[in-house]
């Protein structure tokens, strides 16, 4: 599979001179089309900054990000970010349907009616039939995040960058949302990059987990999750492959945390 997204020697630092604070340093990664890749790392390692750089919302200080072979210097069409803070990312003056339609503003070759039908279809796919007319603040947190996911997909996205999308929803909803995300990612042919601090979630969702080092961060290990799709909350989490991958990632991150404490 060809790479859809690559980062080549990406660095990002804030400030300058003696106050210069490097967040990312010489980070290289490559995401193939159709993959589901999780990014995990110790707290505060710069995961969100990395995602902003990958999305074109933040310009890297060094190196370059490419999306479908084109250097990313602004958010490209075909790539969308699902933010952790869904209540701020959804526009409260628009209904759920209008929020999804807002995501489709750059979609070409569809008239208003076709766009509306497509938006309703995607809302239905995330289980929100009949909620298009509601405002985001009238539905639960899990539903709001599903609207945000639907909006991302509706923008004719091929690559979803998910920034801890489930961190703010309760534990039970989170498990359902994980399965829903996997389902719609497959159904709408989305390549996914998931940033999370939850190692179990990272392994459960992904074909590949990239473990990030402490700040200034870079990829320190790739852990391939050799488990079939679709995943299952009970059997997948008990499979030897899952436990093995989880062990490897957790041990790496724990090692980094202890290293940080000593230094």
């Amino acid at each position: 599979m060809p790479a859809i997204l690559t980062a080549d020697g990406v660095g990002k630092s804030y400030g300058s001179g003696s106050a210069r604070m490097p967040i990312i340093d010489g980070l290289t990664l490559s995401i193939a089309k159709g993959e589901f890749v999780s990014l995990v790392g110790p707290s505060g390692c710069g995961k969100t900054t990395l995602l902003m750089c990958l999305s074109g919302l933040l310009a890297p200080s060094d190196g370059a990000v490419s999306f479908k072979g084109q250097v990313v210097d602004q958010p490209p069409i075909g790539l969308s970010v699902v933010f952790q803070d869904y209540s701020r990312s959804l526009l409260p003056w628009k209904t759920n349907l209008d929020n999804v339609l807002f995501g489709m503003r750059r979609v070409q070759g569809m008239d208003a009616r076709a766009k509306r039908a497509r938006a309703e279809e995607i809302l239905a796919a995330v289980g929100l039939t009949g909620f298009g007319g509601h405002y985001p603040w009238q539905v639960s947190g899990g539903m709001q995040q599903r609207v945000a996911i639907a909006r991302g997909i509706a923008s004719q996205s091929e690559l979803l960058l998910l920034d801890e999308p489930l961190a703010a929803v309760d534990a039970q909803t989170r498990a359902d949302m994980q399965d829903l995300l996997l389902d719609v990612a497959q159904r709408f042919k989305q390549t996914c990059v998931l940033v999370t601090h939850d190692v179990e979630e990272a392994v459960y969702m992904a074909n590949r987990v990239l473990v990030l080092g402490p700040r200034p961060t870079r990829v320190v290990r790739e852990v391939v999750v050799d488990l079939p799709m679709p995943r299952d909350q009970l059997t997948t989490r008990e499979a030897p492959g899952f436990l093995h991958a989880r062990h490897e990632v957790l041990a790496l991150i724990r090692g980094m945390r202890q290293g940080q404490k000593l230094s």
């Binding site: 933010f83 701020r88 990312s89 995501g103 750059r106």
Partner: peptide
């Protein structure tokens, strides 16, 4: 908020678009 502005930019709004639409 930054999240709202980033959302607008992600869907291709220019600075003027951000002002009027966000």
């Amino acid at each position: 908020g930054a999240v709202q502005l980033n959302t607008g930019r992600m869907f291709g709004l220019s600075n003027w678009g951000l002002l009027w639409r966000i």
